[in-house]
Nucleic acid binder design. Structure first.
Lengths: 243, 243
DNA sequence: CTATTCTGAATGAATGTTCAACAAATGATG
DNA sequence: CATCATTTGTTGAACATTCATTCAGAATAG
């Protein structure tokens, strides 16, 4: 089941932010060895504000998310956001970029971990989409908030599309590889579209929270798709119904 | 290809509105034979404002849609919306309800037209999702705008879910029927979820307009899904690759 | 003439942004 | 080490703008 949408309480949020910021700070420190303390602090604040933004997007939605919400959510004063980010627009773009980076890093890691076998890689990619770390109500709600505005904002559209640029190519390549080894009839590009669209659609369903769709049942549906599309690579758990 | 997102020009909009309103007016007149002229006029205005709302949602997105936009788009004065609809919130709910009704009527008609064969019915439902009348950039953008706000608004959530309540049940029943006659291995409920999620995901992709996804290629992907999941009912156009 | 529909300016609330003052950390100097 | 200067980070009130809503009166239909 998805965890509750209730935003992380202040203490938890702080910890998560600091945790995340620490890693980030380290990598940044390697690149530029200067102003270390200050620089780190600045990044911590920005991440803190970005996390608060995600909270607000999840709780109130895009149109009701205000600068005051974000500042309050982070436990800081009203003018702070315009100091670290120039404007509300830039805060939101930074938030979306943060989520896109996180998402891309996540599936790339899963892909690497899966080794060289296309069938294992594809299964890993699909499973990665439903990991708790990125597939929770908070993040899904934030994603959907951006999707809703993407059509009328080229900047959002480009960042949401970060998911597709390389991602979609990987899917096509994997579908092509499986077709080769399994002698399937589909067109790789078309099957890849169907597959990735289903993943996004399942996210949407999870986000809506209607019906009784859970992370588990969504993953089950995705795997059933794999079994149907690539039966030789993903045999059915139980044989066909006989009576 | 999807038509341009440019909202219908005033003349076209008027015609479409009046056309649509005429039918609606007739059915309403059957129910309650009273205040005919006035009632009809009132409904025309409301539809006109709803159409203008969809235009604005598609062009500016949810968060940037203002009462002034809607009034201007309809070619009427500023205070008119609060006269016909009590508030902005109620206008938006009415708009969503209008789209949900239209969508439901559309797939029900397609289902009826398909006859009694489950395989034909399922194909008809899938194809109906990509009909020009409901699957165009304008409507898709409006749908997505509501999705983006649905999580934080129970009213929207319920109306978006109108799609799922009965719709999902039909899908499950059809998947069960095909499983019976085709001796497939999947679980009907799970396969129905995968299928309907893919349809929504394709809508999302179409709305985003990224890549080169068109109504045609989206429908092709959906049909390829059908062939993969129900090979005995939807044989591949061309046989498996042999070399 | 009466009821209904419509207009457009006025109003008030919400909210993004600015900014002057303040606090804290860093660096320089003796 | 102590002290001051400077840069950086933060605050909260003030400001300007946008926008939904209201409403008194005009226009129109019955």
């Amino acid at each position: 089941m998805l965890e509750t949408v209730t935003p992380m309480k202040t203490a938890e949020a702080r910890e998560a932010v600091l945790e995340s910021a620490r890693k980030n700070g380290e990598s940044a420190r390697k690149n530029e060895t200067e102003k270390r303390g200050r620089k780190a602090s600045k990044e911590v604040r920005q991440l803190q504000l970005i996390e608060a933004t995600i909270d607000s997007l999840a709780k109130r939605g895009y149109s009701e998310t205000t600068m005051a919400d974000v500042a309050d959510g982070a436990g800081l004063s009203r003018g702070i956001v315009n100091f670290h980010f120039e404007s509300k627009e830039k805060l939101l773009v930074a938030t979306l970029a943060y989520m896109a980076d996180e998402y891309a890093a996540h599936w790339r890691a899963a892909l690497t971990r899966a080794g060289d076998d296309p069938a294992r890689q594809l299964r890993a990619l699909v499973a990665a989409d439903f990991d708790r770390s990125i597939c929770n109500k908070r993040k899904l709600a934030a994603w959907c908030a951006f999707w809703g505005e993407a059509k009328s904002r080229p900047t959002y559209q480009a960042l949401c599309g970060a998911r597709d640029a390389a991602y979609q190519k990987i899917f096509i390549d994997l579908c092509a590889a499986l077709k080769e080894s399994g002698d399937y009839a589909y067109e790789p590009q078309v099957m890849a579209l169907a597959l990735s669209a289903m993943l996004e659609g399942l996210w949407l369903r999870l986000m809506m929270g209607t019906e009784d769709v859970t992370r588990e049942s969504a993953l089950q549906a995705a795997n059933e798709f794999l079994s149907a599309a690539f039966p030789k690579h993903y045999p059915w758990a139980s044989g066909p119904k006989k009576a």
